Simulated assay, not measured.
Amino acid sequence: MTKTIRTIISMGLATGLCFSASANAQDEAHLQERERLLSLIEAVNGDPDKRKRAIQKGHQRVSFCSNCHGDDGNSKRPEIPNLAGQNPAYLLEQFDLFADGRRKDFVMQTLAREFTLEDKVNISIYFANQEVVRDQEIDPFKARQGKEIFESVCQYCHGKDGKGEAGYARLAGQQKDFMINALKRYRENTDTERAPDEVRRTDARMERVTQHLTDQDIEALANYIASIE
């Protein structure tokens, strides 16, 4: 077991991380918001006709998204995340984060503020129903190292298969470069000397976990995550 994993476990971050009784106010608010978004998605997915229409309408609205994320949600650039197969409630949540400025990106913030709620739900459901295309080169040694970290830390929220739990992000098959950048941005969120405001990402759980990850740990994790089918 690596020093990183021992450190995280010793601080109690790997057990009950998602739904701990000691979760702070930010965690609780986050969970409540996720429940609201899940209910919006389930109201559509629970009706086959509504779901079919949502997929059709979502496809009609992804023309702007496809320039970076691909028409089928498979990214055209390694630093851009795949959206194919992503949990729809998670995607819907990201629209909210971009719209109110908690996530920073000029294009995404603009789109998130212009799309209607119906657009956002339909787009989220459309991408969730696309297949992930895996065409990345994986370093098998790093992937083995990353698997150990993932199983000790990440699977509690993101699932043993990396496909997410209850609206948490699907990681399986995600772009390596995107994962490396995202994890570093979470890690550096509290360090104003290392990351300007516009590139930080804010999430209490992710900040607690990533602050103990080295660059080597993050690269190993990214390789393993990209390899998950």
Rank of each mutant, 00 (worst) to 15 (best):
N24V: 11
D71S: 10
D47Y: 00
G46E: 05
P78M: 03
R36T: 08
N45Q: 10
E33M: 08
Q94C: 10
P48N: 01
K76M: 06
P48M: 01
E79P: 00
R51Y: 04
A43M: 03
L83I: 01
A84R: 02
Q26E: 14
Q32Y: 08
S22C: 12
G70Y: 06
C18Y: 15
D49W: 05
I41M: 06
S39C: 04
R61I: 03
A29C: 05
R77C: 03
N67D: 07
H30M: 13
Q32W: 07
E28S: 09
L91C: 11
H59W: 10
F95N: 11
E28A: 13
Y90T: 04
Q60K: 10
L40G: 00
N74G: 02
F95K: 07
P48Y: 04
G58A: 00
L31G: 09
E42S: 07
L91R: 06
P81F: 01
E33L: 11
E79R: 08
S75P: 03
D49K: 09
G70F: 04
T15W: 14
L91D: 07
C68Y: 03
R36K: 11
A84K: 05
D27M: 13
F19Y: 15
N74V: 01
G16Y: 12
F95Y: 14
R61N: 10
L31R: 14
K57D: 13
E79A: 08
L97I: 08
R77H: 14
N45L: 08
L91M: 14
A54M: 01
K57H: 13
S75W: 02
L92K: 08
L38K: 09
H59I: 00
D71V: 08
Q56T: 09
I55N: 05
D72S: 09
H69D: 05
F95T: 07
G85S: 03
S66K: 04
K52T: 08
Y90S: 07
N24C: 14
H59R: 11
C68Q: 01
S75I: 00
E79L: 06
